[in-house]
Amino acid sequence: MDLQRFWEWFYSSPAIDVLRNAKYAIPLIQSFHLFGLTLVLGTVVIFNARLLGIGMGKITPPVIANQLWRITLIGLLLSITTGILVFIPDPARYASNTAFKTKLVILIASILFHFTFFRKAIRSTTPTPRGRAAAVAAVSLTLWFGVGWAGRAIAFLG
């Protein structure tokens, strides 16, 4: 079965039909999507505040990273899974939405940055130089919050 046929089968499968037609299925799934967002953005704010030296001075960045890295991942997986579930029943609406396409691009950029430059900065046992920490935090916060705002914009922009 090729990919196109798989998606067509998936799109018209009874399970997806339930999602499409049950009155509260989508808002419930979106609730989990938002809970995932809370975990991702919440931990990202903590990482970046610490990196910038705004409070949290009694806990080192690598300890914060060790303890919360998984929480970010759990939130991310929750948001991606529920995001797919919101997308599948109504792909045409999203595929043609500029905010949605922008969101996907920023999301991919966020993930790539998070697991490379950001990970290196937050896990470093020697303090990251001020300028570098500021640059890393600026990129990280802009990207992750960009995902959130682009997501919200799906409802308001075509």
Binding site: I46, F145, G148
Partner: peptide, 11 residues
């Protein structure tokens, strides 16, 4: 209102 969830509930 939604994105401030990260600062309030997130912490």
């Amino acid at each position: 209102h939604i994105i401030a969830l990260s600062l309030s509930v997130g912490l």
